[in-house]
């Protein structure tokens, strides 16, 4: 079995969107989410010597991020005098469970649905990360941010027909990347 390695030079390019998306669905604040992602990368850098190569790089970063999110909630709760936690559980040892629950299930959807969607989101994010940079950028603006063709063309200084060619390539690549597990 090949051991996993860490390459922090690529972290921001490969994982920042994924980590951000993971965080924002849990903390609901863009600025805080960005801070948590930054802190995660830094913590990862400082913890590299402890990496045993057992987990994939991204899984390892996510486990650091989870701790950061828990710490974040712990901090707001202690600022609020822990009232909310005590109302839910009498016993302070359960505080950790409460936090874990809140992080594991941030939606009202059924758990199964949210796990499947999380896996799908995960798969789509990794496929997008594999696209050439320009393709990924155009595709995200057009598809996920729902920006107008004209707006994107102006911003990136490309023609509309050029944009559609790029979108086409990105869609073909994504469909084939997702085909094995999701089609």
């Amino acid at each position: 079995m090949p051991k996993h390695t860490l390459n922090p030079n690529n972290w921001v390019d490969l994982y920042s969107d994924y980590l951000f998306n993971y965080t924002i669905t849990r903390v609901n604040d863009r600025v805080i989410a960005q801070d948590l992602v930054s802190e995660t990368f830094l913590a990862g850098l400082n913890a590299m010597k402890n990496f045993k190569g057992e987990a994939a790089e991204r899984t390892w970063l996510i486990s650091i991020l989870k701790r950061k999110i828990i710490d974040y909630y712990r901090k707001i709760n202690s600022n609020k005098g822990k009232a909310e936690v005590r109302m839910t559980y009498n016993d302070s040892e359960s505080e950790g469970d409460w936090l874990e629950e809140r992080i594991a299930d941030p939606f009202d959807k059924t758990a199964e649905d949210s796990i499947e969607n999380e896996e799908l989101a995960d798969a789509i994010q990794s496929c997008i990360a594999k696209l050439p940079k320009k393709q990924a950028e155009v595709f995200k603006k057009k598809t996920i941010l729902n920006q107008e063709t004209e707006t994107i063309s102006k911003e990136l200084n490309i023609t509309a027909s050029n944009l559609w060619v790029i979108v086409h390539r990105a869609r073909v690549a994504l469909a084939s990347c997702l085909e094995k597990n999701w089609f």
Binding site: S16, F20, N117, L120, I124, I144, W182
Partner: peptide, 10 residues
């Protein structure tokens, strides 16, 4: 598939 997921990118 894309419509099923709510994405928020940086």
């Amino acid at each position: 598939l894309l419509n099923k997921i709510k994405f928020q990118f940086l």
